[in-house]
Design a protein around this nucleic acid. Structure first.
Lengths: 132, 132
DNA sequence: CAGTATCCAACTGGATACTG
DNA sequence: CAGTATCCAGTTGGATACTG
């Protein structure tokens, strides 16, 4: 419909897809852990903390499906499975870390904005000017 | 509980919060639209496309709550409301655009990874070695 | 125009139990 | 160990109707 083939098109499926992937609850955390080197499933589960097996599996599969993470199986007994960032995954880390760095740098500013917002909300009893 | 005050901690609430915010379905698209200049509510609704009033409102409120977007009301009849990025919001655009640029640059690589992944899935009928 | 309110379907993610 | 399968609660987001 709209002739926006410019690569900056925010509706670009690729962008939506990436945001879908990294927007899920654990993917970025997992990816950041993996950027420090390969990890086994249970290692990840422990070090990430608070994630269920199912969610971690889903998350890793999704990362794997998009070519960001590689699953390396060592057919021993018991089986050993390592997860590692692919080269593609590595290249994502740079912009991703820039984003998380922004989050940390501006943590206070955001917190202040929230405080202001909530204050403004409470000071808005226009529909109930008098009560109690 | 957990003594991880290192600012690189992926579990950092600020990071989780930012990802929560920009991970929602429309926020990044809306933010990118606003990075081109202020827009009215209905303008946004039209230009973003496919978003419901409720979702757009929720999205804008969330962005506003985090201090990324400013709501400017002109008390005319009918009322006019403009949304614009705040300075803080502007600073987020840089890492965010880096991320979307990555998505566009690597669109093909991701698509190929997906194709490979699905292929590998289909070639995995170990539990049903013979069929049809 | 710029919302709010309500209802509802789909998806996300956790807990639990079971398997190779 | 590294999952899969199932169930279930909470959240997200769309459709619709109504309001100042």
């Amino acid at each position: 419909m709209k002739p926006l083939p410019r690569h900056g098109d925010p509706r670009c499926p690729a962008v939506r897809n990436l945001l879908q992937t990294i927007g899920s609850k654990w993917s970025v955390i997992v990816a950041l852990h993996l950027s420090a080197g390969p990890h086994r499933f249970s290692e990840l589960k422990r070090s990430v903390g608070g994630v269920s097996q199912k969610s971690l599996t889903t998350c890793l599969r999704e990362l794997e499906r998009n070519g960001l993470v590689e699953r390396v199986v060592t057919p021993s007994v018991p089986p050993r499975v390592d997860y590692a960032l692919t080269e593609l995954g590595e290249t994502l880390m740079e912009p991703l870390k820039a984003l998380t760095a922004w989050a940390v740098r501006n943590e206070c500013a955001v917190a202040q904005a929230r405080a202001r917002f909530e204050e403004a909300e409470e000071a808005e009893p226009e529909k109930q000017p008098a009560a109690v």
